[in-house]
Simulated scan of single mutants.
Amino acid sequence: MLEKTNQVNLLFDFYAPLLKGKQCEYLELYYLDDLSLSEIAEMYEVSRQAVYDHIKRAEKQLNEYDGKLRLTRKHEQRQELVRKITDLVEATDESNMKEEMLTLLHQLSEMD
C-alpha cells in the first residue's frame, strides 16, 4: 500500500492541475492528508462510495496522463543522472571546482 501511495503522490505532483475539482480535492485529502473515505464523505456530505469512485477515476486519469506524457519516468532518469554525476564530482580532488559543481548539481535537482 505504501508503494501505491508513493506512486499516486508522485503522479499527483506532476498532474494535479489537470484533474477536475472534486477528483483533485478527494485525492489530496485521501493520499496527502491521509483522511479515510468516511471522513471525506462526511466533510462533503456525500456517500463513501461517491468519494471512492472519484478517487479511482482520478487515479486512472493520472496513470493515463503519465502513460502519454511520461513525466515521472523522465524525472526518475534525471534524478539518477544527477546522483551519478554527484558521485563523480565528490570523487574529484579539485576542491574549488568541486563546490561549484555540487552547487550546480543541487540547483539542477531542485528544478523538478
Rank of each mutant, 00 (worst) to 15 (best):
L2D: 14
E3T: 04
E3G: 06
E3S: 13
K4T: 10
K4F: 13
K4Q: 14
K4P: 03
T5G: 02
N6A: 11
Q7K: 14
Q7F: 15
V8A: 07
V8M: 15
N9A: 11
L10D: 09
L11G: 07
F12I: 00
F12L: 15
D13Q: 13
F14D: 01
F14H: 14
F14M: 07
Y15P: 15
P17Y: 00
P17N: 01
L18F: 15
L19A: 04
K20Y: 08
G21Q: 11
Q23C: 07
Q23M: 14
C24M: 11
C24F: 05
C24Q: 13
E25T: 15
E28L: 06
E28I: 03
L29I: 01
Y30E: 02
D34A: 09
L35I: 01
L35R: 14
S36T: 15
S36K: 14
L37N: 14
S38M: 09
S38I: 06
I40Q: 04
I40L: 10
A41L: 11
M43Y: 12
Y44S: 11
Y44L: 05
V46F: 03
S47Q: 04
S47F: 08
A50G: 08
V51K: 04
Y52G: 08
H54L: 00
I55E: 02
R57Y: 14
R57N: 12
A58M: 05
E59H: 04
Q61W: 07
Q61S: 09
L62W: 06
N63D: 03
N63F: 12
E64K: 08
E64M: 08
D66F: 10
D66A: 01
D66I: 07
G67T: 02
L69N: 03
L71M: 13
L71I: 01
R73L: 09
R73Y: 13
E76N: 09
R78F: 13
E80M: 11
E80K: 11
V82T: 00
V82R: 00
V82A: 05
V82D: 00
R83L: 12
K84S: 10
K84Y: 04
I85L: 15
I85T: 04
T86Y: 08
D87C: 03
D87H: 10
D87G: 01
L88V: 07
V89Y: 05
A91C: 06
D93G: 08
D93I: 00
D93T: 06
S95W: 02
S95Y: 02
M97F: 10
K98T: 01
M101Q: 04
L102C: 06
T103F: 10
L104N: 12
L104A: 09
H106C: 05
H106Y: 11
S109P: 02
E110P: 05
E110G: 06
E110C: 13
M111S: 15
D112T: 03
D112K: 01
